[in-house]
């Protein structure tokens, strides 16, 4: 239960930790988009090198990033297998009906694998080096243009930060309830899938009950304290654009240029 590494913030004072969350969020999305423009093996090698450099810069052990990939490894392998066995072209080594193994298939398989892994690595860098609350601010900032369409960004940001805020509480509570039910004789990881699903009821129901209760109390408290969602709000944490953010964006531009150049090789 405590092994959820994705989205866990590691404190530190690296260049990446100090970057403005808006820059980090934008750069992450940009690099992920860039992954889809890479067309050859050199491009992927370049992006692997850049990603590993960024990961090294965070000062966080590699194992934390690998753990981010672990829960998704079967999904990734499934997608890669589809790519490998259903893509034709180049030298065909083996063929059985629609299934085949070709040199082209192997290469696209490698591309798919690299895209997935790099995507997870890069987004893990974001979540490991950015406090959830900063991330919410960044999302809020990037969504601001939507206000033109009269969509209430503030409500959305508030919902987001409240849910992020209560994730640790929910995890704690889950651990406690799991322990309490284990003490009452529930054995997890035993029996067929239906039996296993049934065992979740004694955990999920108390969690729902307490979450609903807490949501109600929180809403009451906010109302008592005079919270109104349609008011103009000032912010406690002011985001400031700094030199290092400009440097980071410049590096992004250089990376784009490098990708464009490498694509021509």
């Amino acid at each position: 239960m405590n092994k959820l590494m994705m989205g866990r913030y590691f404190s530190g004072d690296s260049f990446l930790h100090q970057l403005d969350p808006r820059t980090k969020l934008f750069a992450t999305l940009y690099i992920i988009a860039l992954l889809f423009f890479v067309e050859n093996i050199w491009g992927f090698l370049l992006l692997f090198a850049v990603t590993f450099f960024i990961m090294h810069q965070t000062g966080i052990a590699l194992v934390a990033f690998i753990n981010g990939v672990k829960p998704l490894i079967w999904l990734i392998l499934f997608a890669v297998m589809l790519r490998i066995f259903f893509t034709g072209g180049g030298i065909v080594y083996f063929r059985a009906g629609p299934v085949m193994l070709s040199s082209f298939g192997l290469i696209t398989g490698f591309y798919t694998f690299s895209r997935f892994v790099l995507m997870i690595f890069i987004s893990t860098v974001l979540t490991l080096t950015t406090k959830p609350i900063d991330l919410t601010d960044a999302i809020h900032a990037l969504l601001k243009p939507l206000q033109i369409f009269r969509i209430s960004i503030n409500d959305f940001a508030l919902m987001l930060s409240i849910s992020l805020r209560f994730i640790p509480n929910l995890l704690d509570e889950t651990t406690k309830i799991v322990d309490a039910q284990r003490a009452r004789g529930v054995v997890f990881g035993k029996g067929n899938i239906i039996q296993q699903m049934k065992k979740l009821v004694p955990i999920v129901l108390p969690l729902f009950a307490s979450s609903l209760k807490r949501a109600e109390e929180l809403a009451d408290v906010m109302e008592v304290k005079g919270y109104q969602s349609d008011q103009k709000r000032t912010r406690y944490r002011q985001l400031k654009w700094q030199v290092r953010d400009a440097v980071a964006l410049l590096m992004i531009v250089l990376l784009t240029a490098a990708v464009v150049f490498v694509n021509r090789l």
């Binding site: 309830i177 309490a180 003490a183 004694p202 955990i203 129901l205």
Partner: peptide, 10 residues
């Protein structure tokens, strides 16, 4: 456990 009523579900 502490606050054992939190484990009630049935």
């Amino acid at each position: 456990f502490q606050f054992p009523e939190h484990q009630l579900f049935a």
